[in-house]
Design a protein around this nucleic acid. Sequence first.
DNA 1: ATCAAGTTTTGAAACCTTTCAATTCAGGGT
DNA 2: ACCCTGAATTGAAAGGTTTCAAAACTTGAT
Lengths: 353, 353
Amino acid sequence: MVTTEPGSGRPLRGTSPRSPSVKDVAVAAEVSLGTVSNVLNRPDRVSERTRERVERVMRELGFVRNESARQLRAGRSSTIAYVMLDATNPFFTDVAQGIEEAAEHADMSLFICNSDNRAAREARYLQRLQQQRVQGILITPVNPDDPTLDEVSRHGTPVVIVDRVGSIENHCSVAVDDVLGGRVAIDHLLDMGHERIAVVGGPQSIGQVRDRFTGARAAMQDAGRSPDDLAVVGTDALSVSEGRSAGERIAGMPRSSRPTAAFCANDLLALGLLQQCVALGISVPEDLAIVGYDDIDFAAAAAVPLTSVRQPRRDLGRTAAELLLDEDSNAEHAHQQILFTPELVARGSTRHS
Amino acid sequence: MVTTEPGSGRPLRGTSPRSPSVKDVAVAAEVSLGTVSNVLNRPDRVSERTRERVERVMRELGFVRNESARQLRAGRSSTIAYVMLDATNPFFTDVAQGIEEAAEHADMSLFICNSDNRAAREARYLQRLQQQRVQGILITPVNPDDPTLDEVSRHGTPVVIVDRVGSIENHCSVAVDDVLGGRVAIDHLLDMGHERIAVVGGPQSIGQVRDRFTGARAAMQDAGRSPDDLAVVGTDALSVSEGRSAGERIAGMPRSSRPTAAFCANDLLALGLLQQCVALGISVPEDLAIVGYDDIDFAAAAAVPLTSVRQPRRDLGRTAAELLLDEDSNAEHAHQQILFTPELVARGSTRHS
DNA sequence: ATCAAGTTTTGAAACCTTTCAATTCAGGGT
DNA sequence: ACCCTGAATTGAAAGGTTTCAAAACTTGAT
């Protein structure tokens, strides 16, 4: 590690003790303060000549609007926020992209926070966002039943739940039908003729995991099989490394009873599992077929392309943001719960070549 | 897609027309407004009894500090921002995690923005952040020589360049030595006995790409080979899909002149290339050895684990944030350029088994 | 009782922008 | 010359918080 310092120290410090305000502009342009404001907010009300003069002064002085004062006066900001559950999971970054699209379209700023799956951090962010008087909060909550969420919206800051379903009493929500997704995955594996199927994922405290597994059991039931035939391989998180460890456990099972297919609660797990299988000489899909969930870009890019349950990630984000913006602007707004349908994308990890 | 609406409409709307202010609290607690502020900011100056009473009233009224007013008075916020280049690249999300660590430690809020590699969007964010009077801006710029960056810091908002080196006159920067990284990668491939090496990446407008390739050429030179012996496979972006397309082009070369090794400008490219090779029956590393760059988590998780040049991503972020905070608080602050050293992590994609 | 030395509380000013009613201005019509 | 109209400009108030000098109160000592 190399460090360089400039000889001169801090060259430009102290040059601008305070940035110029509308007042300074008004004085320099020899107009009233109200006129400066008009230039900023209703340029059509200002004569051509004055407007140009004021604008020139603004440039010369380097005037930058003070958003705090603006908000204070206006009572509300033009910022919305997304509190995401896990910034390192591509699923959520794609959702965020969708949100950003909608926010940009509505000329709103988007403030992204990462709760990192920690309730305490989530709570801290919620409080800060309320203090900032953001226009609304999109959140994939650690726990969708957390009463804090209700408090926030009761308090006047609209909240939209993303990728979970909250109480319809208090907020809109946009999610994908995880139960159906679980069903689809298992149906596919049954179609492929698999008899011994494992479900990989956890902890059960994560709603997405519960729902996907519920769907998996339902699919078994409908196929005339007992839901208990599913071998449950639990994990502590939905990460690549947990997937690897699940792979070790599966590899350790006696060949005769070892599952021939695994349904993973998300793609990170599936990729870890896939890697471990390859490392241990279990071929995919011949010895073990694998289905993931989310269809992140890396799923298709794996050396054995991963079959996965695709969710409309961008749409999810965009729709959520649109609901939020509607709640902000439309007095007639009624809370809605929108449920998207997932879709199986079959690739090499389940297809015999 | 299914939509549900609640029968009752919007249950709690209009309940809180305006959230209570310090003034409301003061009235309800029968103290002066200054005392309420003291409870908030200097609780030790307030008698036990009064403090409790005021706090109780705050809870009852559901008082939430108005951050705009606070900032307006204080002249500065307690927020810093990171303008990231590509939210879907795990490298940057890891950097962001490092920043967040430092910010959390200093009890600052972090505002994350995604320029998505677009200069216009970056400019828009910079302007908004200045308007918000953030305490400082961390940025991985689309173009580190953009004069806008200098303007921003001249204007009083400290700017720290992350993963690039800017003008030391005006800002600190924290980067990893990309030239060295390129060197290390090629040295490794030469060590493994490769003669025909390709470099994959682009566009050249991206500084990271230029530097890594410069290092690659230097390594050739030092090994007594001509830099021109490197076959350059250009791409339009640093993405998985561009990596796949590069793979097609390499596969299309005649066997006799086809490179036996490829150095990719980042891991996304390398993963795409790897996938395409597998799909086209080119075995890795026997027919083509691959070195990536960044060592993102997915690199190790690929079915053929990827050799890659690791950068201390979290440290990068943390250090950058610390420099920014120093610039905010330390009058003696001198701009620094910190350069971290990358490190090669050899894995299966270059190792003959 | 009185005073000094704290401790606690108060009230007013300041931060910067926006809004809106009121004022001034310019020009045309009589 | 005068009035009217519409356009342009002004000035003051408001919004919620923090700060700080000044005022009020407490306590203990004389």
